[in-house]
Amino acid sequence: MDSFTRGALRFDVTEHGPADGVPVLLLHGFPQTAASWEPVARRLADAGYRVLAPDQRGYSPGARPAGRRAYRVEELVDDVVALADAAGADAVHVVGHDWGAIVAWALAALHPERVRTLTAVSVPHPAAFMAAMVSSRQLALSWYVYLFQVPALAERFLGRPGGLAAAVRRTGQTAERARRDEAALTAKGGLRPALTGAVNWYRATPFWEHRGLRVTVATPTLMVWSDGDSAVSRASVERNPRWVTGPYRLEVFAGVSHWIPDEAPDRLADLVLEHVAER
């Protein structure tokens, strides 16, 4: 599989592993693509899993609708359901990083029958995250979210050559990987159009139908967070157990930045393999 469709939208997909393997979906975050999952995907594929990593809505040139409302989390979740359907899978293991983790949480909350296990990397349950915004330093860490609401501002400053890479480097990403991520978005129909699609995920948050997705998750859940994360506080992660009624495990990576799949892919893959093998 190299693509799938949902209505008029066409999404790019990278597939690894045997076609008859148990499916594992890898959901990237901002401002990355499926390429960020390569080392983890190879490890899962070598273990016999069918790994599908999509370039999500706004990142795939064929799935870049106009308007903020088209990027509500409910739409992002239905995109993942469409991928599972296209793969012929009733239920899948889902691993998400950054915004991909938010989509994974929402999928498990709204369509629990489609998720065998959930692995959330860096970002906790949306309700836990929102609660931390008003009672911890999470609000200060999320300052950029509010700037992204200003029309064209992110595109103006991040869309300059090297602008996105420089911003990502300030959050702990290496120069090489930051350039990789900027180049990947540039190759997807141009950097500024891709940025608009990516930033629209933030701009759509006021239009979510399930405010903060205040729905508990019964799916067996692995949460992986790193103490060097410059965007997500420990306080937000520690609120997770209030929103998970099923088996839950937290793993904290010491000395690792927000970019866990890039910085610690083997350790992350080991945890995911252990988690999915139990179910």
Rank of each mutant, 00 (worst) to 15 (best):
F157M: 14
F157V: 15
L158E: 04
L158F: 13
G159P: 01
G159R: 02
R160W: 11
P161S: 14
P161W: 08
G162V: 07
G162A: 12
G163C: 09
G163I: 02
L164C: 06
L164M: 14
A166V: 08
A167L: 07
V168E: 01
R169T: 12
R170S: 15
R170N: 13
R170A: 14
R170M: 14
T171I: 05
G172H: 02
G172F: 04
G172W: 01
Q173E: 12
Q173K: 11
T174F: 05
A175I: 10
E176S: 14
E176V: 13
E176P: 07
E176W: 04
R177P: 00
R177G: 10
R177E: 15
R177A: 14
A178P: 03
A178Q: 08
A178Y: 05
R179N: 09
R179D: 13
R180Q: 14
R180L: 14
D181P: 00
D181T: 10
E182L: 11
E182N: 07
A184S: 07
A184I: 05
A184T: 01
L185M: 07
L185W: 01
T186Y: 03
T186I: 11
A187F: 04
A187L: 06
A187S: 06
K188W: 05
G189I: 09
G190R: 05
G190E: 10
L191C: 02
L191A: 03
L191G: 02
R192S: 01
R192M: 10
R192K: 13
R192T: 08
P193I: 11
P193R: 05
P193W: 09
A194M: 02
L195N: 04
T196N: 00
T196V: 12
T196F: 05
A198E: 01
A198T: 08
V199F: 05
V199H: 02
V199N: 01
N200M: 03
W201H: 07
Y202I: 04
Y202C: 07
Y202A: 04
R203E: 04
R203L: 08
R203S: 06
A204E: 01
T205D: 03
P206E: 04
F207N: 00
F207M: 07
F207G: 04
W208L: 09
W208I: 09
E209Y: 03
H210G: 03
H210Q: 14
H210L: 05
H210S: 10
G212I: 00
L213M: 13
R214T: 12
R214N: 14
R214D: 15
V215M: 12
V215R: 10
V215L: 15
T216P: 09
T216N: 13
T216A: 12
V217H: 00
V217C: 13
A218H: 07
A218S: 15
T219S: 11
T219I: 09
